[in-house]
Amino acid sequence: MNIFVAPDKFRGSLEASEVCQAVKEGILLAYPDANVTTIPLADGGEGTAQILTQHANGQTITATVNDPLGRPVNASYGLSADRKTAFIEMAAASGLALLSAAERNPLRTSTFGTGQLLQHALEQGVNHIILGIGGSATTDGGIGMAMALGYQFFDKNRTLLRPEGASLNDIAFINADHADKRLSNVTVTVACDVTNPLYGPNGAAYIYGPQKGANADMVEILDKGLQNLAKVAAETFGEDVSNDQGAGAAGGLGAGCLWFLNAVLKDGVSIVIEQSRIGELISHADLVITGEGKVDEQTLSGKVVKGLADFCGQYNVPLAVICGTLQITPEQARDAGMTYATSVLNRPMDLNSAQTEAFGLVRDATFNLVRLFFVKR
């Protein structure tokens, strides 16, 4: 039997590669003759660049860039074996994890370091960039990134503005004359797992600003600033993308990538699945096993599990799902294309115990599901 294993990480417990190992051990314990293929997956968030780099047999590149507050930080990205594709996570340079709670202030934080990473990749001669934009500390609409790449933003007095969220309301002119010419020879694909518009009640400032340190007054200022950016950018580039799905991702970096990089926004699952050529592996499998830390209603709208379920449905291959927490009904699991779904928890336990014992719990749950699935074979 061919069993294909392709899980996401169990956040706080196991990386995707560790989940793969635990599942493989459980399979072979139950079915020693199984032919097991494992590929760690991600949904476009943290860890995606590393996984894509592995799939591309690539290498890790490190550059010194600005963190969200302009301090030097060493940030890494991936480069494919043929050196044609760069895999970048904006969180490496502009992520919330780089700041203490007291330092979080989206009026002052910037995506400038992300632009520096993009520039560093351009210097390697790449012709394709895959950029993950989860985990940001910023709400600057991508102007910091754009400034690092040569764009200039001026106020009404033609004074050059700083690359930070507080500048958004003052933007009156955008000058693209000095933008890095190499951008015209590069395609940029953005891994984006949210669908929020740029501004408004469901936009970047109101929905995500508070977790980045914004109080109510800051949220209002930032939202008005993003509206102003949309007005000036639409006049400059001839297109208003502020209502495109994902425009509000990463504090408006989604919209910034559309305007300043001519990028395409795609859900992260689709990108990872496409880059890892999973369709072919699924087509030859007798069973696919996946999983993630929590399976809930959000899982049903584009995460790793749902992405695999769609592929399995195409090839009529059963899909088994293991997780730490299972929060969907049997009907939802069935309708999403899951053949089997179970929590790995085998007794009442607190979160710390579950995370500490995660490897063994995943292995044992896999053993039980494989024994059940192949009981008649």
Rank of each mutant, 00 (worst) to 15 (best):
N196E: 10
L198S: 06
L198T: 06
Y199S: 15
G200R: 11
P201D: 15
N202M: 13
N202H: 14
G203Q: 11
G203T: 09
G203A: 11
G203F: 11
A205M: 07
A205E: 10
A205H: 07
I207P: 09
I207S: 07
Y208D: 04
P210D: 05
Q211R: 02
A214Q: 03
A214G: 05
A216D: 15
D217R: 09
I221S: 12
L222Q: 12
K224T: 11
K224I: 08
K224S: 12
K224Q: 15
K224H: 14
G225K: 10
G225E: 11
G225M: 12
G225A: 12
L226H: 13
L226E: 13
Q227I: 07
Q227R: 15
A230I: 06
A230R: 07
K231C: 11
V232G: 10
E235L: 13
T236K: 15
S242G: 10
S242I: 02
D244F: 13
D244H: 14
D244Q: 14
G246D: 06
A247S: 15
G248Q: 09
A249P: 12
A250Y: 06
G251T: 04
G251Q: 04
G252P: 09
L253K: 04
L253F: 10
L253S: 04
L253Y: 00
L253M: 15
G254K: 08
G254H: 07
G254W: 07
L258P: 01
W259K: 05
W259R: 06
W259I: 03
F260Y: 12
F260Q: 03
N262T: 03
L265N: 09
K266C: 11
D267P: 13
D267Q: 11
D267G: 12
V269F: 08
V269P: 10
S270C: 04
V272S: 03
V272T: 14
I273Y: 02
I273V: 13
I273T: 06
Q275P: 00
Q275I: 00
Q275K: 15
S276F: 04
R277T: 05
I278N: 01
G279S: 07
G279H: 00
E280L: 05
L281D: 05
L281F: 03
I282L: 01
I282W: 00
I282C: 03
S283W: 00
A285P: 03
A285K: 05
A285S: 15
D286W: 02
D286Y: 01
D286G: 08
V288M: 01
V288I: 07
T290R: 02
G291F: 02
G293R: 12
G293K: 12
G293W: 09
K294Y: 00
K294T: 14
V295I: 15
V295Y: 00
Q298R: 09
Q298M: 13
T299M: 04
T299Y: 07
T299I: 01
L300V: 06
S301A: 09
S301T: 14
G302Q: 07
V304S: 02
K306D: 04
G307S: 09
G307D: 06
L308I: 14
L308S: 03
A309T: 00
D310E: 10
D310M: 02
F311P: 01
F311S: 01
C312E: 03
C312V: 01
Q314Y: 01
Y315H: 13
Y315Q: 03
N316W: 01
N316Q: 15
N316T: 13
N316I: 10
V317F: 05
V317L: 01
V317I: 11
P318I: 00
P318C: 04
P318S: 02
L319Q: 01
V321K: 08
I322V: 15
G324D: 12
G324S: 08
